[in-house]
Amino acid sequence: MKKPIRILIITLLSILLVIVSAGCYAAISFQSAREESEAKLSPINQNFTGDEQTSDKELTVMVVGNDSRDDDEDQGRSDTLMVGHYDGKTKQPKLISIMRDSYMTFPDGSLDKINAAYAYGGAQMTKEVLNTNFDLPINYYVVMDFKEFSDIIDELYPKGVKIDAEKDINLDGVDILKGEQVMDGNTLLQYARFRMDEEGDFGRIRRQQQVMDALIDQSKDLIPIWELPQVAGKIVGKIDTNVPTSLFIDLAKDFLTGKVKPLESLSVPIESSWNFNDDTPSGSVIELDASKNADAIQEFLKDTK
């Protein structure tokens, strides 16, 4: 064998060895960190069946936030419901925020608040309600409680998150003053979940979108790429999700390297598509025009290259 060819083969084999070694290290780091975390996967979500992806470059993830405190009268109901969409080809993240009191049709034909779906049937039931009302396919789910959110923020953003607070807020012993500041995980959580004012859930949805926008905008260069598997393992271990490990890491790489475009957001129900109704079996609800909101969602998710 000629020397140049032999050198080429040795070089290629060396590169392959490095790639394989790096992959093994990443897998071991991820699994080790996940096993050491505080994972408590919910049995209610073991039957989740994600809708088929329309493209291997696009995915839709349903994010459920749960307030799991024992004194919560709505124990088991979702406190926050968002649907994230990411196009890996265009690098465009999109976020749909759905108000918790939205009155929707359930698969059996009954009507109830969307936040009751999680209590009735976990992530699977919540997905089916979104399918039924908005023809919105869901590929994956993520469920986390308030403490997990706070811990994850502190893990990913050890120096805090910059936020321009839109108003003075006090919630669960946390005082937030209007203006620019750096928030830790718990402070950011209280800012995002506050709704005890005249705006109610409408103001809270706006602040949640502000928080998500800040998290994405400030995600670049948070951690070195070689630390990603270990950090990803810690995060995945703290949440209930069916997002595959490889996909989770691939997505994180895009965000951490600043490859993604600015976040686009949509609030549901959209303007002029809803009414308050205080006289229902579910109490005070937001009645919405499902068809009008479904059209708005489909238009929002259209490819905009």
Rank of each mutant, 00 (worst) to 15 (best):
G84T: 02
Q46L: 14
I235P: 01
G76C: 03
P4E: 10
F194D: 03
I138F: 11
P229I: 04
E36W: 02
F106D: 06
D87V: 03
D51M: 09
L12G: 02
S68T: 03
S55E: 02
I223F: 14
D135M: 11
N277K: 04
T49M: 14
V20E: 08
M99P: 02
K57I: 05
S272R: 12
N131V: 09
S29T: 00
S291L: 12
P229G: 06
D201K: 10
Q210G: 11
L8H: 02
I176S: 06
M1V: 12
K159I: 09
L95H: 00
G200R: 06
D154H: 10
A117H: 05
L251C: 08
F134M: 02
G122P: 00
V129E: 06
D71E: 14
E155R: 13
K302V: 03
N170C: 04
R207C: 08
L171P: 03
E128F: 10
T280V: 05
D213P: 04
I153A: 12
V231E: 01
K253L: 13
I15N: 05
K234V: 05
S42I: 00
R195T: 05
D87M: 03
K2T: 10
V211I: 13
L130C: 07
D279V: 13
V211S: 07
L130V: 12
V161R: 05
A116H: 15
S32Y: 04
G258V: 01
A192G: 08
S68G: 11
A252N: 08
D279M: 08
F202M: 12
R193W: 04
D289R: 07
P269Y: 05
Q124Y: 11
T11R: 09
A290T: 15
T241Y: 05
K238D: 10
G84A: 12
S272K: 15
S272W: 07
K167Y: 07
E198N: 14
L17E: 10
G203V: 02
Q53S: 11
E35T: 07
S102Y: 03
I216P: 01
V129M: 10
N277T: 02
D135H: 14
N133T: 09
P224E: 08
Q181D: 15
A296L: 02
V268L: 08
K127T: 09
E287H: 07
T304V: 09
I138L: 13
I19S: 13
P4A: 11
I225P: 02
V64C: 08
I239W: 05
E271C: 06
D184A: 12
K261F: 01
I169Y: 07
W274E: 02
D67P: 00
V83P: 00
A192C: 10
E199F: 09
A27Y: 15
L228E: 09
F48W: 13
D135R: 12
G50T: 06
I286K: 05
E166F: 09
T11N: 09
T304E: 15
G121N: 00
Q210N: 14
I235T: 03
E35I: 03
